[in-house]
Amino acid sequence: MSDATSDTTAYRPPAPPGPLRDFWNSFRENRGAVIGLFVFALFLFIAIFAPLLAPYSPSEQFREHLLQPPAWSEGGNWRFPLGTDPLGRDMLSRLLHGARYSFFIGVVVVGVASFFGVTIGVIAGFAPRWLDTLIMRVMDIVLSFPSLLMALVLVAILGPSLINAMIAIAIVLQPHFVRLTRAAVMSERTKDYVTAARVAGAGRLRIMFRTVLPNCLAPIIVQAALSFSTAVLDAAALGFLGMGAQPPTPEWGTMLAEAREFILRAWWVVTFPGLCILITVLAINLMGDGLRDALDPKLKRS
């Protein structure tokens, strides 16, 4: 792409476009991805500063304002811009704090799943045939269960709590990382630069994690971004089924579940958490698609 730069400038060569700059240029082409990135940044900002942004504590109850509609509709009050829930808690504060949980779930689940998934994947990619087969068959077994069902079973065994739900989701997501990493490692490890590193005296571990792994990161990053939204969604689903975060935690899925019986009387108690989940997941998916376009040269538009 910039072969000419090194020959044409004799005195002060301009800084060649770094990989980051290059990445941003191709990422920027995808408008949806940029919007997704901004929404995600907003989400991140809210998650970090929720206690400062929220007008009330998420668990503070206002007994005289039960199920108050949003400010703009009839009977609303600007004290509670998005209304209150059946226990008189401010919806806006709860939703803002809910972002914290969702973000926390996403980061921890993706972190755990990708750490173990990538490590196992690299090992499988370099392992002798029997070990590789063993690892991949175990992963196939995990993958063959519907993911939410598997997570449900795991939570049922471990006991319902947010931490256990995160562990369960991480276990369910991790085979995807294993497969992806293994495939990338296998195509990368036969290349000459790996052999060259071996001739230069690099040991097995160094070749696995220092030479090969950095060249396999692109699809893994994309998978991590897309898994983030799956994690948020699955955690909300588990919360909704009563297997995830327990009330009074202002987790979006749990909020949905609590408000289920008021769905006809008070539309706002179910709509807003649902919208939050929708927007977050959509934004992350858009961003993930953009990441894939920018990072994966095979899918790059020419």
Binding site: K191, D192, Y193, A196, A197, V199, A200, T211, N215
Partner: peptide, 12 residues
Amino acid sequence: QIVFQDPYGSLN
């Protein structure tokens, strides 16, 4: 030491 055929594949 060795120099490979394909200079596009032999550098990390």
